[in-house]
Design a binder for these strands. Structure first.
Lengths: 218, 218
DNA sequence: ATAAATATTTAGACGAGTCTAAAAAAATAT
DNA sequence: ATATTTTTTTAGACTCGTCTAAATATTTAT
């Protein structure tokens, strides 16, 4: 059985490698885990010995099939708990991350299956991220960055790429939520910010940075 | 902030001391924590340094007011989670303990308040144990051991003292659950077993051991 | 192609929580 | 009241995950 820490490393490796499609460097991992490179090297050896990642000195790590399965289980748990917190307990979408980081480590397959059923087998969490099913399958979603959306094309907000509380609160304030209709009216040459129109004719400007954190339907 | 381990020790001390009304010996604690006396001595020093218990060498430990408050918070969390698992997720009452042992350590006061609200502020968990409120107040319940119930007196099953899965499964099988009406028809002199009558006229025999694990209304 | 800068690994140490074995204190029995 | 048994504590060691400092490998710049 994996420790809390091993699970966190694995999840991080999965995310940093874009689901296993590239190698992850020691320093990247150290940064994302808020730890030191030396500690990462140690943990890499452990995970490697368990065949959850493959490791080549001075090159980086790649997640194995087995490691990917573990990572997806943790991600599934995280996203189911986030969904529970928002849809059942009434949390806001910017309040759930830290609690879900804890809940994702609870060990009970039965619990997760029952929770999934209780929630009605949701396919996406409150931030619009797909929830892997019990076999680790993720529903592929077609989406593009808001920055790449054609002018005047009607679209829908599908997910946030990075969901820090302050960003989510900002989205709340300007009326952006998962599922809202959206259209880009104009692209400002100067700073790349966008004038957008939301459901109900609401027009707002958002920065290029914010727009590049939003995924919308094609 | 307390570690997972410190919380478990504190909870154990609370229970073994009957809510703080007597000192707990090192060996008792070692037994209940499934560890060795030497390890207990070490942890005792830690908790003592944090003023959660008071400790006299070769005598035992007593929980302090502060320690009691911590213990009650953990017990509150445990029982709320058990209630959630049974009433919302459809677990059986014999399946919830181990998962709740994990969930009770999740750190989020907001989570517990929201969970409490979601469950409708329950006052007892699936085993009939009182759930402390957010201030640590426990509803006092009048109850006696089934072994002490007068013959032919109508009563109601209120809680199980010790709730191992196998005991709970046995209760299921013979039709005993929290809230069922119960009456002692006869006490067998030989082995102390009881012939009881449940709601719906069902008559069964239960051993003295089983009966001394059941609490009923006076 | 060599020097400088950057990234990674090794070596050795630490704190938390645990253990075993031995010492010390307390309780019990004769 | 002394010897024996039981309980508790101390001493020292081990694992896990972490750290700093130093060594080594790789990359980048000139």
């Amino acid at each position: 059985m994996l420790s809390f820490t091993e699970e966190n490393y694995l999840k991080s490796i999965y995310h940093l490698s874009n689901g296993g499609s590239k190698a992850v460097l020691t320093n990247e991992l150290a940064e994302s885990m808020n730890t030191k490179a030396a500690s990462v090297t140690d943990m890499i050896k452990k995970l490697s010995a368990k065949s959850l990642i493959s490791y080549e000195k001075y090159y980086g790590v790649k997640i194995t099939k087995q490691g990917k399965a573990e990572a997806l289980t943790i991600i599934r748990k995280h996203r189911l708990w986030e969904t529970f917190l928002v849809s059942k307990l009434g949390f806001n979408w910017d309040e759930v991350h830290d609690v879900a980081e804890q809940l994702e480590h609870i060990q009970s397959a039965l619990l997760i299956e029952k929770l999934d059923e209780f929630l009605g087998y949701p396919t996406a969490d409150p931030h619009g991220h797909s929830i892997p099913d019990k076999h680790g399958k993720i529903k592929a979603v077609r989406h593009i960055l808001l920055t790449d959306l054609l002018l005047k094309k009607k679209s829908t907000v599908q997910s946030v790429k990075q969901g820090s509380p302050s960003f989510l609160q900002y989205l709340n304030k300007i009326g952006i939520y998962i599922g809202v209709g959206i259209m880009v009216l104009e692209r400002v040459e100067f700073d790349g910010s966008l004038e957008i129109q939301l459901d109900g004719k609401k027009k707002v400007f958002i920065s290029r940075d914010a727009a590049s954190n939003l995924m919308v339907t094609e």
